[in-house]
């Protein structure tokens, strides 16, 4: 089936099998920053913004993305500059192995769109669909709040 998507700002047309998962489609375009960490929609490593809303792309079919705008980690940078969430993850040591990081950052970026000044509980709640096996989350929370500061300063 033919699908039309806007992937990180670029229009694409591709032919996909209906059963192809959105995550496989995205990774197949070379955007391998979107990861797969589980079989049961539990980990959020595959999280991508679909029309601005975080979705687990292992639990959507690529055909369902037609007409939608997708933002993956590769699309976070704007005009060559890191998105505040990216800068903040580095600054606050919000990542270790980096495998959960793209999903975490996208979920967090969506949270900050809604609420640029989240409390610790707000952040912990918002990222509770994304698992991290390395960090213990404390620094992720700090990173998200720091990104909020960076956003509010601008």
């Amino acid at each position: 089936m033919e699908i039309n998507v806007t992937l990180n700002g670029t229009q694409r047309t591709d032919d996909v099998e209906p059963r192809q998962l959105l995550v496989d489609y995205i990774r197949g375009t070379g955007n391998t920053g979107t990861h797969i960490g589980c079989d049961t929609t539990s980990c959020g490593a595959c999280t991508v913004l679909v029309d601005g809303t975080p979705m687990k792309t292992c639990t959507m079919f690529a055909v369902q993305a037609t007409g939608k705008s997708l933002t993956t980690v590769e699309g976070l940078k704007q005009n060559g500059a890191l998105h505040p969430i990216q800068a903040a993850f580095k600054e606050k040591h919000g990542l270790q192995c980096g495998f959960c990081t793209p999903g975490m950052m996208l979920t967090s970026a969506a949270l900050l769109e809604e609420n640029p000044d989240p409390s610790e509980d707000d952040v912990r709640w918002a990222i509770s669909g994304n698992l991290c096996r390395c960090t213990g989350y404390v620094n992720i929370v700090k990173a998200v709040q720091h990104a909020g500061e960076l956003i509010r300063e601008n």
Partner: peptide, 9 residues
């Protein structure tokens, strides 16, 4: 119900 991302869908 589920988690925040699953709830989006």
């Amino acid at each position: 119900v589920a988690d925040p991302i699953v709830r989006n869908r």
